[in-house]
Design a protein around this nucleic acid. Structure first.
Lengths: 285, 285
DNA sequence: CCCGGGAGG
DNA sequence: CCCTCCCGG
């Protein structure tokens, strides 16, 4: 059941029960810096149900290890959500859908307070995609968190760019005192981003931090065997966009650090996902 | 044997003998206007060998009826050429190739004098396509005639645009006292032509004559049953480009009239080709 | 969820 | 020689 049918409007719901798996690790909070915001964005490939219990436990281990303030997830399926809700009790999980596969935003309860969440529809998606937005308070600052899983496959370039435009407008139009952070599986090709463009106020965090090669490719069939691909291909599908809030002419938060995560094989010989996760942190300028 | 394999570099040569067919009609020249140039461009679909004898006779009937000064042909095969050379003795036939399928230029001997012909190669074609050029004298004027069958299928857009650029440069770079006329099966989509662009001096004859709907679609699976297509699709694949020679600030020849030809079914219930032919005439401004 | 090629409507 | 889908590498 490793196949994804991206054309299917309503994929059959996989019948897996991840709660049957035994827990992998216990929470051990690392140090926290009050003014530093840490975020993970990850397409967890819930549509590949092979080893999904072990893979979900792997993700949970990361949450325990890094204790990110915000986790932006794509390709969740209901049993995955069920598992996360049961295990990651220190997080509030907001879901972008209920059936098939969908996105989610996890907020570390001790650090991030939800004000309001909403789902923005993409009028012409053929893959049930949408934009999930959470307006939160972080350390006394207004923060808008967004995630999405843009239309997949090269052929759906036009729809994907429409979705990017939706995100772009939301980011651009936010009040000046709001920090806006988008992280997701954009499926974007560079030429698509060039065509659509980003507002001057919005940056691609990977670019802003110097385009480091070691965290360029978030989807890589050579380094990642999860889809058992008989071809070599790598793309920068997963991206983080950031629009700082401005206070007295200087940004309240700015990109600080970025790394790929999920690079270690699990006991099953596979990875948490066919995508690497993106970890990044933002600190007061 | 109606299938075309556009990927094949060297298609097997069809073994048909069109000379076995009985002649369909005898020549009966219509009136000629010394200063008016008449041209037909037609992809005759020689790769579809069903009813090809009758279809070739149909083409010949058109030559007899319209007595065009110039005939630009695509998808000729050797037996088709053999038939035309035998029947259309009032024309000189210049061939763009010898094997597989190729283009040809027919010159009405009484009106058009060949000065020189050449074959311009497309360095990266995967379908053995080229540009056939004939430098001729028509009514005391220098005229360059060009035809080509650009790379087929949507997927080969990039190669097709390269081929268009070759034609564009040849047309643009011709001396001012030369009238340049290209007609062929370009397989172009409008967005491709928009991307490449035409020099200001060059016009698309269909556009110049007012974009008339009745001669827009030169390939139309609804109106034309030759390929027995289980789908409906129509395209303006066949196009005529024209760059006038300038004499004392005014063009020596300008587009005058355009029509589609080959719209009548033959006795076999099929058409001369799956493409309509384009007839056009040019007259002194 | 890469790419190209082939089948079917 | 249209399109979409499916498949294998």
């Amino acid at each position: 059941t490793k196949k994804k049918n991206w054309e299917e409007e309503k994929p059959a719901e996989p019948s897996v029960d991840l709660t049957k798996d035994s827990p992998a690790s216990s929470g051990k909070p690392s140090e926290e810096d009050d003014c530093k915001l840490s975020v993970i964005s990850w397409n967890v490939d819930g549509l590949d149900t092979d080893n999904l219990g072990e893979r979900a436990r792997g993700l949970f281990s990361f949450l325990v290890l890094y204790t990110p303030d915000v986790v932006l997830l794509q390709e969740l399926i209901p049993p995955y959500v069920h598992y996360l809700k049961k295990r990651a009790v220190s997080y509030l999980l907001i879901e972008g859908g209920e059936e098939g596969y969908f996105t989610g935003i996890m907020l570390k309860r001790s650090r991030v307070k939800l004000v309001e969440s909403q789902i923005v529809t993409y009028p012409t998606t053929r893959m049930m995609r949408n934009l999930l937005v959470a307006q939160v308070d972080f350390n006394g600052q207004k923060l808008w968190l967004m995630t999405s899983h843009f239309e997949s496959c090269k052929a759906h370039s036009a729809e994907r760019m429409k979705q990017l435009r939706v995100v772009k407008q939301r980011m651009k139009g936010a009040p000046y005192d709001v920090t806006v952070l988008f992280g997701g599986d954009t499926n974007l090709r560079d030429y698509e981003l060039t065509k659509v463009g980003l507002p001057a106020s919005v940056c691609d965090v990977w670019e802003r931090l110097g385009k480091q090669e070691h965290c360029r490719w978030t989807w890589d069939t050579k380094a990642n065997n999860n889809n058992n691909a008989p071809y070599v291909s790598r793309c920068r599908f997963d991206r983080v966009f950031f629009r700082p809030a401005i206070k007295d002419g200087v940004p309240r938060l700015a990109p600080d650090h970025m790394a790929l995560v999920g690079l270690e094989k699990l006991d099953c010989g596979r990875f948490i996902s066919d995508h690497w996760g993106i970890y990044c942190s933002f600190s007061a300028g």
